[in-house]
Design a protein around this nucleic acid. Structure first.
Length: 758
DNA sequence: GTCCTCCTGCTTTTT
DNA sequence: GCAGGAGGAC
């Protein structure tokens, strides 16, 4: 039909509207392998979504196209933007490697011997299982050993190491065996197993699109290869400078290998940045130029230089957070809060920002951190629900049976485990047959537990997930999931309510969904869905910020040891850290606010810090060195070094002795003159204090005992509670409180002004 | 045998 | 400043 053709042409014209020539070429090159090397902010997502729409416009049904991303957030955004172009479609395959895999395994898993009811073990479950195995083998199994073992096994699975040594290979074999016995699949397993569907995969789609291709691991690459049909219609988009996941097997070399793997690949480079100001691009480019291993792109922008990047030194994290929040308040009238983000290296950095934002009553959105679904009380509840779906999961059995306590302890569980092993049954199957032997007390508790799980099992495919949760909570008495420790219970109760709410919301979208559907959803979910108020500041790690952009970006904590992050005894992957810094800076459209503190609290200790080497790699003419506004000075901060702080590294002493003189000279020139050494809290004072480290610390933190004499171990008297012993002291000034235990009662937290020392 | 508390030992980053 | 584990109290 000629009329139809015309429509298609018109649509296509709209799709390439406003694109530059390489972008246009990428959108129009539908057939054959295509690799788009796209610099930061070069319109990558735009190209990808329009290209997808263009394929649809050319007459391909959406369900024959699959778009793969790495994060849920990226998938959500892609879906949203595709819908804007082609309207709402339910038959679109857009998702992360993991979610697409889970979906396929539910559909076709039986063909490779996987039961439909498999559960997904997340990183925590994996750790728990490995810990259990190490313990069983009488190997050391503290957090460090578990982590090390997991990382070796994962490297082996990803063929990043060829060989396992010593007990590792036995542990690995046993781990895989247990997973299978529990009818469980872990994250890597999802990808591995999907790749086994080699008969089915190539028939499912005609077009494959991949975002953030530089983060592809070997296993994922294998999966992709299997997904591409004979026509070779695969398009990958990536940027080697933004490869920040090597620790989980990503290898930007696949960007090179791609052309060999798919002969006839067309390569398109997108080098014009549309996102950021000239200063931001210059700074980011200069920084990344320090990396040796990169393909080398020249990112450029037609935009104005814009305002310089701002850099500020603060004394402590508290100051850093408070002054950043003040800046947010100033900018608020011109820039919506949703256009501001604080991006940090590690999740632990979020805390002071949360506190200051709450104090200033600015709404914020925290992405990541202790993930919601990793909280103890949530995992407790989930273990029951997962057990109801898949009774073979011993891990869930062991977790569920312990909460609430029902008189079944380690000894009984060991007995059960031994019997289960002997009979080659799962723990549940053993109990369900009723042929187990335990003490009378344990038997009673077990009977209780069995009947509860049976009832859940009966309802699991019938009633909605949230109703099942209610049933569980009723039967176990909600308090069973709250580990009686006072204040915290409130938060835990709220979390369970939150869980219930999320189930209800899920049911609105998918009224026919049963628990299994919901469980898949949560296992693969990070908590980036928690949006509290539309207009809020975003707090997240740089890793989770990849692919996003904001008008104003705050980058705190640019200190050696933190960023680049250096972990004891582990080698510093400097180039990847630098790529991370590059990603961080390029998230900003207009303003970048870099900062560092002179001291930082680590593991509860005040540590002296030194400027990040990345700061020295930024060109001076893009940066404005700021001193913090006066407000900073009023805080009762003094040089915390006198409070026993240690530096990250030995060797370097005072700033001016470092080889980064140029930077430091600039930094110091912005400090207020140290006119009065007694002026507490000014950077000048800090500098002066640095010269005479013995300066006193009347309200200092930890090691030095404060002048008021209240400290852990001291005996005190309270007018009402009588005599007790201080367990810990927190806070300063009027808010200084002591945790005191009076006799057998749980400790109370009391303002020190109500206490007298004995 | 079970439960609870203190205390150690430690924290990248994500699916 | 947290979680989880070992060892003590019941």
């Amino acid at each position: 039909m000629p009329g139809e053709d015309k429509t298609v042409n018109e649509v296509t014209e709209n799709l390439v509207d406003g694109l530059n020539p390489p972008q246009k070429l990428a959108v129009e090159s539908i057939d054959g392998p295509l690799m788009v090397l796209a610099g930061a902010g070069s319109g990558k997502t735009r190209v990808l979504t329009r290209r997808l729409a263009n394929i649809v416009a050319s007459g391909v049904p959406p369900y024959r196209i699959v778009a793969v991303t790495f994060t849920n957030k990226a998938a959500a955004e892609m879906r949203e933007r595709v819908v804007e172009l082609i309207g709402p479609r339910r038959d679109l395959w857009v998702g992360t490697f993991h979610s697409i895999s889970a979906r396929l395994l539910r559909l076709y898993g039986d063909q490779i011997g996987l039961s439909r009811d498999f559960v997904i073990y997340d990183a925590d479950d994996q750790k728990a299982l490995i810990r259990k195995l190490l313990k069983e083998w009488n190997l050391s199994h503290d957090a460090k050993d578990v982590r090390a073992t997991v990382s070796v096994l994962e490297a082996y699975r990803g063929k990043r190491v060829d060989k396992l040594f010593g007990p590792q290979s036995a542990i690995f074999a046993e781990y895989m065996k247990r997973l299978a016995a529990c009818n469980a699949v872990d994250f890597s397993g999802l990808i591995e197993k999907v790749a086994e569907l080699s008969d089915i995969l190539p028939k499912l789609w005609d077009y494959v699109l991949v975002d953030e291709f530089q983060d592809t691991s070997r296993t994922q690459f294998a999966m992709l290869r299997a997904m591409v049909s004979g026509r070779g219609n695969i398009c990958v988009v990536g940027d080697d400078d933004q490869s920040i996941y090597s620790w989980r097997g990503a290898n930007p070399e696949y960007l090179l290998r791609f052309e060999k793997e798919f002969p006839g690949t067309r390569v398109i480079r997108l080098e014009q940045n549309y996102r950021s100001t000239g200063n931001i691009i210059s700074a980011a480019s200069a920084l990344i130029a320090n990396n040796q291993t990169r393909h080398g792109k020249t990112l450029w922008t037609a935009a104005d230089a814009g305002v310089p990047l701002r850099f500020c030194v603060y004394e402590r994290e508290r100051d850093e957070a408070r002054l950043i929040v003040e800046t947010m308040e100033q900018r608020r009238s011109a820039t919506p809060l949703s256009e501001m983000a604080v991006l940090y290296r590690v999740n632990a950095q979020s805390r002071p920002f949360e506190e200051e934002l709450r104090r200033a009553q600015i709404p914020y959105r925290l992405v990541g951190g202790t993930r919601f679904y990793e909280r103890a009380e949530i995992k407790d509840v989930l273990s029951y629900l997962r057990l109801a779906v898949n009774s073979s999961s011993d891990l869930d059995f062991l977790r569920a049976i312990k909460t609430p306590s029902r008189g079944i302890g380690a000894v009984s569980l060991d007995k059960l485990a031994a019997q289960a092993k002997e009979k080659e049954l799962s723990l549940w199957d053993l109990c369900a047959t009723g042929t187990y032997e335990v003490s009378a007390m344990a038997r009673r508790g077990l009977a209780d537990f069995i009947s509860l799980v049976r009832d859940l099992q009966e309802q699991v495919s019938i009633i909605a997930p949230h109703d099942l949760l209610e049933m569980l909570l009723e039967r176990t008495d909600v308090m069973g999931f709250l580990h009686s420790s006072g204040d915290e219970d409130l938060g835990r109760k709220e979390n369970i309510d939150e869980l219930h709410k999320s189930m209800q919301e899920f049911a609105v979208d998918r009224p026919d969904a049963v628990l299994r559907d919901w469980l898949d959803n949560v296992s693969l979910l990070t908590n980036d869905e928690q949006v509290d108020g539309e207009d809020g500041v975003t707090l997240m790690t740089i890793h989770s910020a990849k692919g996003l952009e904001f008008n104003i970006v705050f980058l705190p904590g640019w200190e050696e040891g933190l960023f680049p992050l250096r972990r004891a005894e582990e080698e510093l992957n400097l180039e990847e850290e630098r790529r991370l810094a590059y990603v961080a800076i390029t998230r900003a459209r207009r303003e970048v606010h870099l900062s560092r503190t002179r001291t930082r609290l680590m593991y509860g200790n005040v540590m002296r810090t030194e400027a990040s080497r990345f700061l020295h790699e930024l060109p001076r003419d893009c940066i404005q060195f700021d001193s913090p506004p006066q407000a900073a000075m009023t805080f009762n901060g003094q040089d915390s070094r006198s409070a026993g702080g240690r530096r990250f590294r030995d060797g370097d002493d005072d700033d001016d002795e470092t080889p980064r003189r140029r930077f430091h000279a600039q930094e110091s020139s912005m400090r207020p003159a140290p006119s009065a050494p007694s002026a507490p809290g000014t950077l000048g004072a800090a500098a002066a204090a640095a010269a005479s480290p013995a300066s006193a610390s009347p309200a200092g933190r930890k090691p030095a005992a404060p002048a008021d004499g209240f400290s852990a171990g001291k005996r005190v008297r309270h007018g009402k509670f009588g005599d007790g012993v201080i367990k810990a002291v927190v806070g300063e000034g009027d808010m200084r409180k002591a945790m005191v235990s009076f006799g057998g009662a749980p400790p109370k937290v009391i303002l020190v002004s109500f206490l007298t020392l004995l």
